[in-house]
Design a protein around this nucleic acid. Structure first.
Lengths: 221, 221
DNA sequence: GCGCCCAAGCTTAACTCAACCTGAACGGAA
DNA sequence: TTCCGTTCAGGTTGAGTTAAGCTTGGGCGC
């Protein structure tokens, strides 16, 4: 867990760093806006603590710069003044939280922990299978990196297959998953959907196991 | 954008709810811990505001209950007492932020917006999508740089879509987030709102995924 | 091994109906 | 009054189903 601390007050900076390290955070200190800007853009941190009252480059500008460069780390800003506009500007620039000086160091730690916890929950698990990949959070399929457009039923079938890739999914299981209620199985609609899917994702991907069902096979064998 | 407000003080609750609704949030109010617990577990909210000083079931227990049930919505806790241990307990139970009473309602809104923005995976304070852009901290939409005037419902729908741009937002999810309380699903009002939105932002932006829902697509793919 | 036969699966095309769109009108709230 | 949200009706579209003919594969008798 690595934190970037941008704070010009040497004394305060070291006090904060000491406390954070005691809690097993790794801390880099930047004593001014320029260094902070640069470090935030080049290194990889789990979160940043940013003093808004910096000399030369104002803290808000540092934050704005990070965001412009696509840095999406959680940022907690510190403000000496109790000024309302400061906080508003900070939030508008993309801050996630703020603290007004003076503050208890335990509070800083707690808020940092909360930020990191929430930010880390955003890893989007992906399943890929040959040229096909599936983002479980958004339900988006991609083929060779290109967005794959599917109808509702095609999507359900393909999801069902990719969640069990490399294993046979029986016909019955498929129609159960695809048609929520139980269905009379005397129909070839599943076959039709599979055929259409094959035309979209390529014949080789979906293998049929005669008498049992279908299997999505990753080219690994 | 739907918020759960758990607050036993009727007056305060309605004041907060009014202010939030003025900012186009949909708000459900729970007047006690039990109701709050239940609503938070069964309904789907984008964030919760939780008073820690509740009668009967303490606020921290409510929060702990949600987390135990796997509800990971962002939670902002309110604490009347200036007590340190309250906040610590709150954070330990999985809170994301807190405010000490009394507070400015604008600050509550700022923090809520920051929480929601972060939870939706966006670090930058501005989301753009084709000619459309959205300022997360102020809730302002712009089309080609010009301020876009929307009604409350139009705003909620469009916000919901832009926060999940390029992914399909299901009809059900949409009406959940847009309407307060429970939802009757047999109505085409969402369709009508979408049609009106299309007339305002252009047809191409809002794509309909038949059988699933709607998608806001940044032409990039 | 060879070939026949039948069941299982594939594919195309047409049809049907639910999902969706939209203009208009109504009713309630500010 | 005006504005906003909802409902309704009529029209449009396209996804899903069906059915029919074709292909494939494996079992079995020779």
């Amino acid at each position: 867990m690595k934190i970037l601390l941008v704070e010009d007050d040497r004394l305060l900076a070291h006090e904060i760093a000491r406390a954070l390290r005691e809690e097993n955070f790794a801390v880099d200190i930047a004593a001014n806006g320029e260094d902070g800007q640069h470090l935030g853009e080049t290194e990889s941190y789990d979160a940043a603590v940013l003093d808004l009252g910096l000399p030369k480059v104002p803290g808000v500008e540092v934050l704005r710069g990070w965001r412009k460069h696509g840095r999406d780390l959680p940022v907690l800003i510190l403000t000496a003044r109790d000024g309302w506009t400061d906080k508003v500007d900070g939030f508008k620039a993309g801050a996630d939280d703020y603290l007004t000086k003076p503050f208890r160091i335990e509070e800083l730690i707690m808020r940092l922990r909360a930020l990191v916890r929430r930010a880390s929950g955003h890893a989007a698990p992906r399943i890929s299978c040959g040229p096909l990949s599936f983002e479980t959070q958004t339900g988006v399929f991609e083929l060779d990196g290109l967005h794959l457009k599917l109808t509702a039923l095609e999507w359900r079938v393909l999801e069902c297959l990719i969640l069990r890739k490399d294993t046979v999914v029986e016909r019955g299981v498929l129609s159960e998953k695809v048609y929520e209620g139980d269905v009379g199985t005397d129909s070839n609609s599943i076959e039709v959907i599979v055929a259409r899917l094959r035309r979209k994702v390529g014949k080789a991907l979906i293998e049929t196991e005669r008498g049992r069902g279908y299997k999505l096979n990753s080219g690994s064998r």
